[in-house]
Design a protein around this nucleic acid. Structure first.
Lengths: 337, 337
DNA sequence: TTGAAAGCGTTACCAT
DNA sequence: ATGGTAACGCTTTCAA
């Protein structure tokens, strides 16, 4: 492998000058910098990663821990992994994957061996065991999601509470007095925090605005296709004139199907808002208003926090990303308003 | 951070003895080994990764490249990523994730900087651009999937051809004379190789055995729920008394639904075999015979090849994993046999 | 069975 | 603006 010595020789300078020219940590004359860059290009020089880690104090690698529980929604999860990788690369970092048992033990291992500069935590559970590990290690840890016990931790997430409230606000503003939330599976409300947070924001704001509200959980269409139908029927029977959906893409489509069967036109007969969805809602058969969950936003912020905490001492805190409302014409005043 | 020197001092030996005791590369007396292990435990010593990479010739990291195209089936993909990570960890390797643009450029980068010992390639396309890169780098590359141009490459995959043939054989052996394959989306037959290989095995064997056969592609239930129904109807109209399914989990369930609507009982009225599925088919509403795609098998083999090619010069070749037939009672002789 | 010491390829400090 | 060189923490050869 071609080393910094060969580059130095080819450019007729010392290795330290090559190092400085490449890192920019010290001014280098325009002329020699060019000679060095030429040599680098011609030789196809790429600094040795191990040597950099050893000499410098950075590995330029972030660990990404993902427990991958069986009930994890794969497409959403993949979107976050991808967004994290892209965000990290933009800042010059690679992603080291820690899955399953390694998500916890691995965190300690790669951190203690100085393999990574920081850790990003995905798929956060309310009582996540990685919280304890985060507190026991030296390197920074950023949670993408919010565990119950988040004292002293860096956390990043969509403000699901606000998303729930925002959905209610927009529907109430449009004149609706009775709305229903079709949410995730029962299990999701036990395993994760964010569904509860959205539900909480939904309920609280509905109460504040004296709006009648009801909640209906859904399964997944694959294993329990009929649950969606039941949820929709229950929502309609409750007298709701508007629906808030917090669910996966297939449930969205299934809900739209059921409504079409019932002869209900979106917007005209029934208003709908999708909240906290990370998939492309424009691919649905009917355009609907959305308060999206944008992985890129969370991951960019998480990576930014990670990078910054490498040389500053950041005050740990929970960063809630304000929800954003995207209109698509699926919300209108109720028929009997 | 605690270093090898502190361990050596605590154990009253030289650092080389500590190194040898830990690596096992040289016999160490029972007594001193124990003292060293005690010191390691008490000090919580973890060898510095950068130093190991630099001094040793191994990084103990594999790159995993995954382009993550929009049409990739997320659950299947996640299963492979997970299986690869687990397989690698079993052999002492971590996984460095290379996504999107990084899947190609990243391969050269991490390889040239000696960040990884080998590369695993996922989600292989027929004309995959990573083939050229694999040929241009020094470190071993293992493809999990088979590109069209695979000369001189290490490839690992389920023998989809044989899986297609096996499905035909079992149905023909049961007495069926007309069978239909409900396959993937049209797009999948352009973007990937494995659907074509299964289809090819299916057709070839059907012709060999003089079995009437037909093929029907399906969409995904999310975006095109009606395509599944059409595919099933077309299959039935073709006179098929048995179905081979090569599709995602939701399509499986949708097919079973349509058959239930038609009043057809699995096994009795119509035989079914699922081929090349990586999800848990036992979660379906009806138990069906399976020729599974087992990510763990491919990934274990891939990792094994990667590890072995680090010190032997392995002859490049395509490793086809023989398909396995799992009975569940969904295949029986045809009614009018 | 063990130890001393020469690298491994960088970075960054100290000079000039 | 540039060069020399001491770390960085480990692996492995050479000696004993």
């Amino acid at each position: 492998m071609t080393s910094i010595h060969e580059v130095a020789e080819a450019a007729g300078v010392s290795i330290s000058t090559v190092s400085y020219a490449l890192s920019g940590n010290r001014p280098v004359s325009e002329k020699t910098r060019r000679r060095i860059e030429d040599a680098v290009r011609e030789l196809g020089y790429q600094p040795n990663a191990g040597a950099r880690m050893l000499a410098g104090r950075r590995t330029n690698i972030f660990a990404l821990t993902e427990p991958l529980r069986p009930d994890t929604h794969a497409p959403t999860h993949m979107a976050f992994v991808l967004a994290a990788a892209v965000a990290a690369r933009k800042r010059g970092y690679d992603i080291l994957l820690l899955t399953e048992e390694q998500a916890s033990a691995g965190m300690s291992r790669v951190t203690a061996s100085d393999l990574v500069d920081a850790t990003l935590v995905l798929d956060v559970a309310p009582d996540d065991e990685r919280v304890a590990i985060a507190r026991s290690i030296r390197t920074p840890t950023i949670f993408i999601g919010i565990p119950d016990d988040n004292d002293g931790l860096h956390c990043v997430d969509l403000d699901f509470d606000a998303a729930g409230s925002l959905a209610v606000d927009r529907l109430a503003d449009a004149g609706h007095h009775s709305i229903a939330l079709i949410g995730q599976s029962e299990l999701a409300y036990q395993r994760s925090n964010f569904p509860r947070r959205l539900l909480n924001g939904f309920r609280t704001r509905a109460e504040e605005r004296r709006i009648a509200q009801s909640f209906h959980s859904s399964g997944t269409t694959v294993t329990e296709p009929r649950i969606v139908r039941r949820a929709v029927d229950a929502a309609l029977e409750s007298g709701a004139t508007a629906l808030v959906l917090h669910a996966a893409d297939d449930v969205h489509e299934a809900v739209l199907d059921v409504l079409a069967e019932r002869g209900l036109r979106i917007g005209d007969d029934l208003s709908i808002v999708s909240a906290g969805a990370s998939f492309d809602t424009s691919a649905l058969s009917v355009a609907i208003d959305t308060i999206p969950l944008i992985p890129q936003l969370s991951c960019d912020l998480a990576v930014d926090l990670a990078v910054r905490s490498l040389d500053e001492a950041l005050t740990p805190s929970v960063h809630l990303i304000p929800p954003e409302y995207r209109e698509a014409g699926s919300v209108a005043p109720p028929q009997h308003a």
